[in-house]
Amino acid sequence: LINIGYFRNIRNYERLKEDLEFQSMVKNVEIWSTALGGIHKSVEENALELIEQIDQELNK
């Protein structure tokens, strides 16, 4: 939201906290962030396991 300039024209942050559309956007960002974090962790673990298997094959 910051990168696309969403906050540049906001004058009343208290009112923004009550805005249901804004709350929904924040919740969606939170959900996607959590989901992508889990995917990243899984990919990282798989990559490390693959590297270990490759190392074992090369050392035979």
Rank of each mutant, 00 (worst) to 15 (best):
I51P: 04
N3W: 07
M25P: 14
W32F: 03
L36T: 01
N59Y: 05
I4G: 08
I51V: 05
L58H: 09
E52T: 05
N9C: 05
N3E: 08
G38K: 04
E14Q: 04
Q53W: 11
L36N: 02
I51N: 06
N28V: 06
V29K: 05
Q23D: 11
T34W: 13
E52K: 01
G38D: 08
H40M: 13
T34F: 14
S24V: 02
E14K: 01
L16G: 04
G5Q: 03
L16W: 04
F7Y: 02
Q23P: 11
N46C: 15
G37C: 02
E44G: 05
V26Q: 03
T34H: 13
R11G: 14
N9E: 00
E52S: 12
L1D: 07
K27A: 03
L58F: 07
E52M: 10
I39L: 10
D55E: 12
N46I: 07
A47R: 14
L50W: 13
S33T: 01
R8A: 08
G38H: 00
E21R: 10
L48F: 15
N3Q: 14
R11I: 14
I31N: 06
I39N: 12
R15K: 11
V26M: 07
K17H: 14
G5R: 01
K17W: 12
R15L: 08
K60A: 07
A35M: 00
A47C: 09
E49A: 09
D19R: 00
S24L: 10
E14P: 02
Q23F: 10
E49R: 01
N28I: 11
R8D: 10
I51H: 08
I39P: 00
W32K: 01
N28G: 07
Q53T: 02
K27Y: 07
V29Y: 06
I39S: 00
E45S: 14
I2T: 08
V43R: 03
S33Y: 09
G37W: 01
M25D: 03
E30I: 00
I10E: 05
E45Y: 12
F7G: 09
K27G: 14
E14N: 02
N9G: 08
Q56D: 07
V26C: 15
A47D: 15
D55R: 12
E45N: 01
Y13K: 12
L58G: 09
L16E: 08
I51T: 07
G5M: 12
A35V: 11
I54H: 03
S33F: 01
L58Y: 00
N3F: 13
G38I: 02
D19T: 01
Q56Y: 14
K60Q: 05
N59R: 14
R11Q: 04
G38V: 10
L58E: 06
A47M: 08
E49N: 06
N12A: 15
